[in-house]
């Protein structure tokens, strides 16, 4: 089951992205286009996901270990710093340029390999660059 949970989780997540229209960069970008022809779909996607995850956190708080028997590996940072805000700002800029964030980009490798590969390879370069430059 240690392998089963990540596989089930990934399948559900990827299917959700595809059903919700979030694999369509133009639609995602239209959510950000509040001064233009705004498409609120992403807000409904986020709302649905947050409802389920809020319940999941309520369950998690009552558990000592995961169902796989592992300790919970959760972020415990609470510091608000320039890395957090600067990184999020950068991400927002890239998101606005291409209409893609990491989840839909990776999932699109299975449905639109050409453009998805360009984005994902570039994203890997950005990840590597960050690792080299920021310590």
């Amino acid at each position: 089951m240690r392998t089963g949970y990540p596989i089930l989780a990934g399948l559900l997540f990827g299917a959700g992205l595809a059903i919700s229209g979030m694999l369509d960069p133009a639609r995602v970008r239209a959510f950000l286009d509040v001064f233009g022809d705004w498409d609120p779909t992403l807000a409904f996607v986020m709302g649905g996901a947050l409802i389920v995850m809020a319940a999941a956190w309520a369950v998690q708080r009552r558990m000592n270990t995961s169902l796989a028997g592992t300790n919970f590996d959760l972020p415990d940072t609470t510091t608000i710093d320039t890395r957090l805000v600067g990184g999020a700002a950068m991400f927002g800029i890239g998101w606005g340029i291409a209409g893609l964030c990491p989840g839909p980009a990776v999932a699109s490798l299975g449905t639109a390999i050409g453009p998805a590969a360009i984005f994902v390879v570039s994203m890997a370069m950005g990840v590597a660059l960050q690792r080299v430059l920021v310590r």
Partner: peptide, 14 residues
């Protein structure tokens, strides 16, 4: 361009 910025930014911003 978007890919590089998203990769860098998401890692920087965790």
């Amino acid at each position: 361009v978007g890919g590089v910025i998203v990769g860098f930014g998401t890692r920087l911003g965790s």
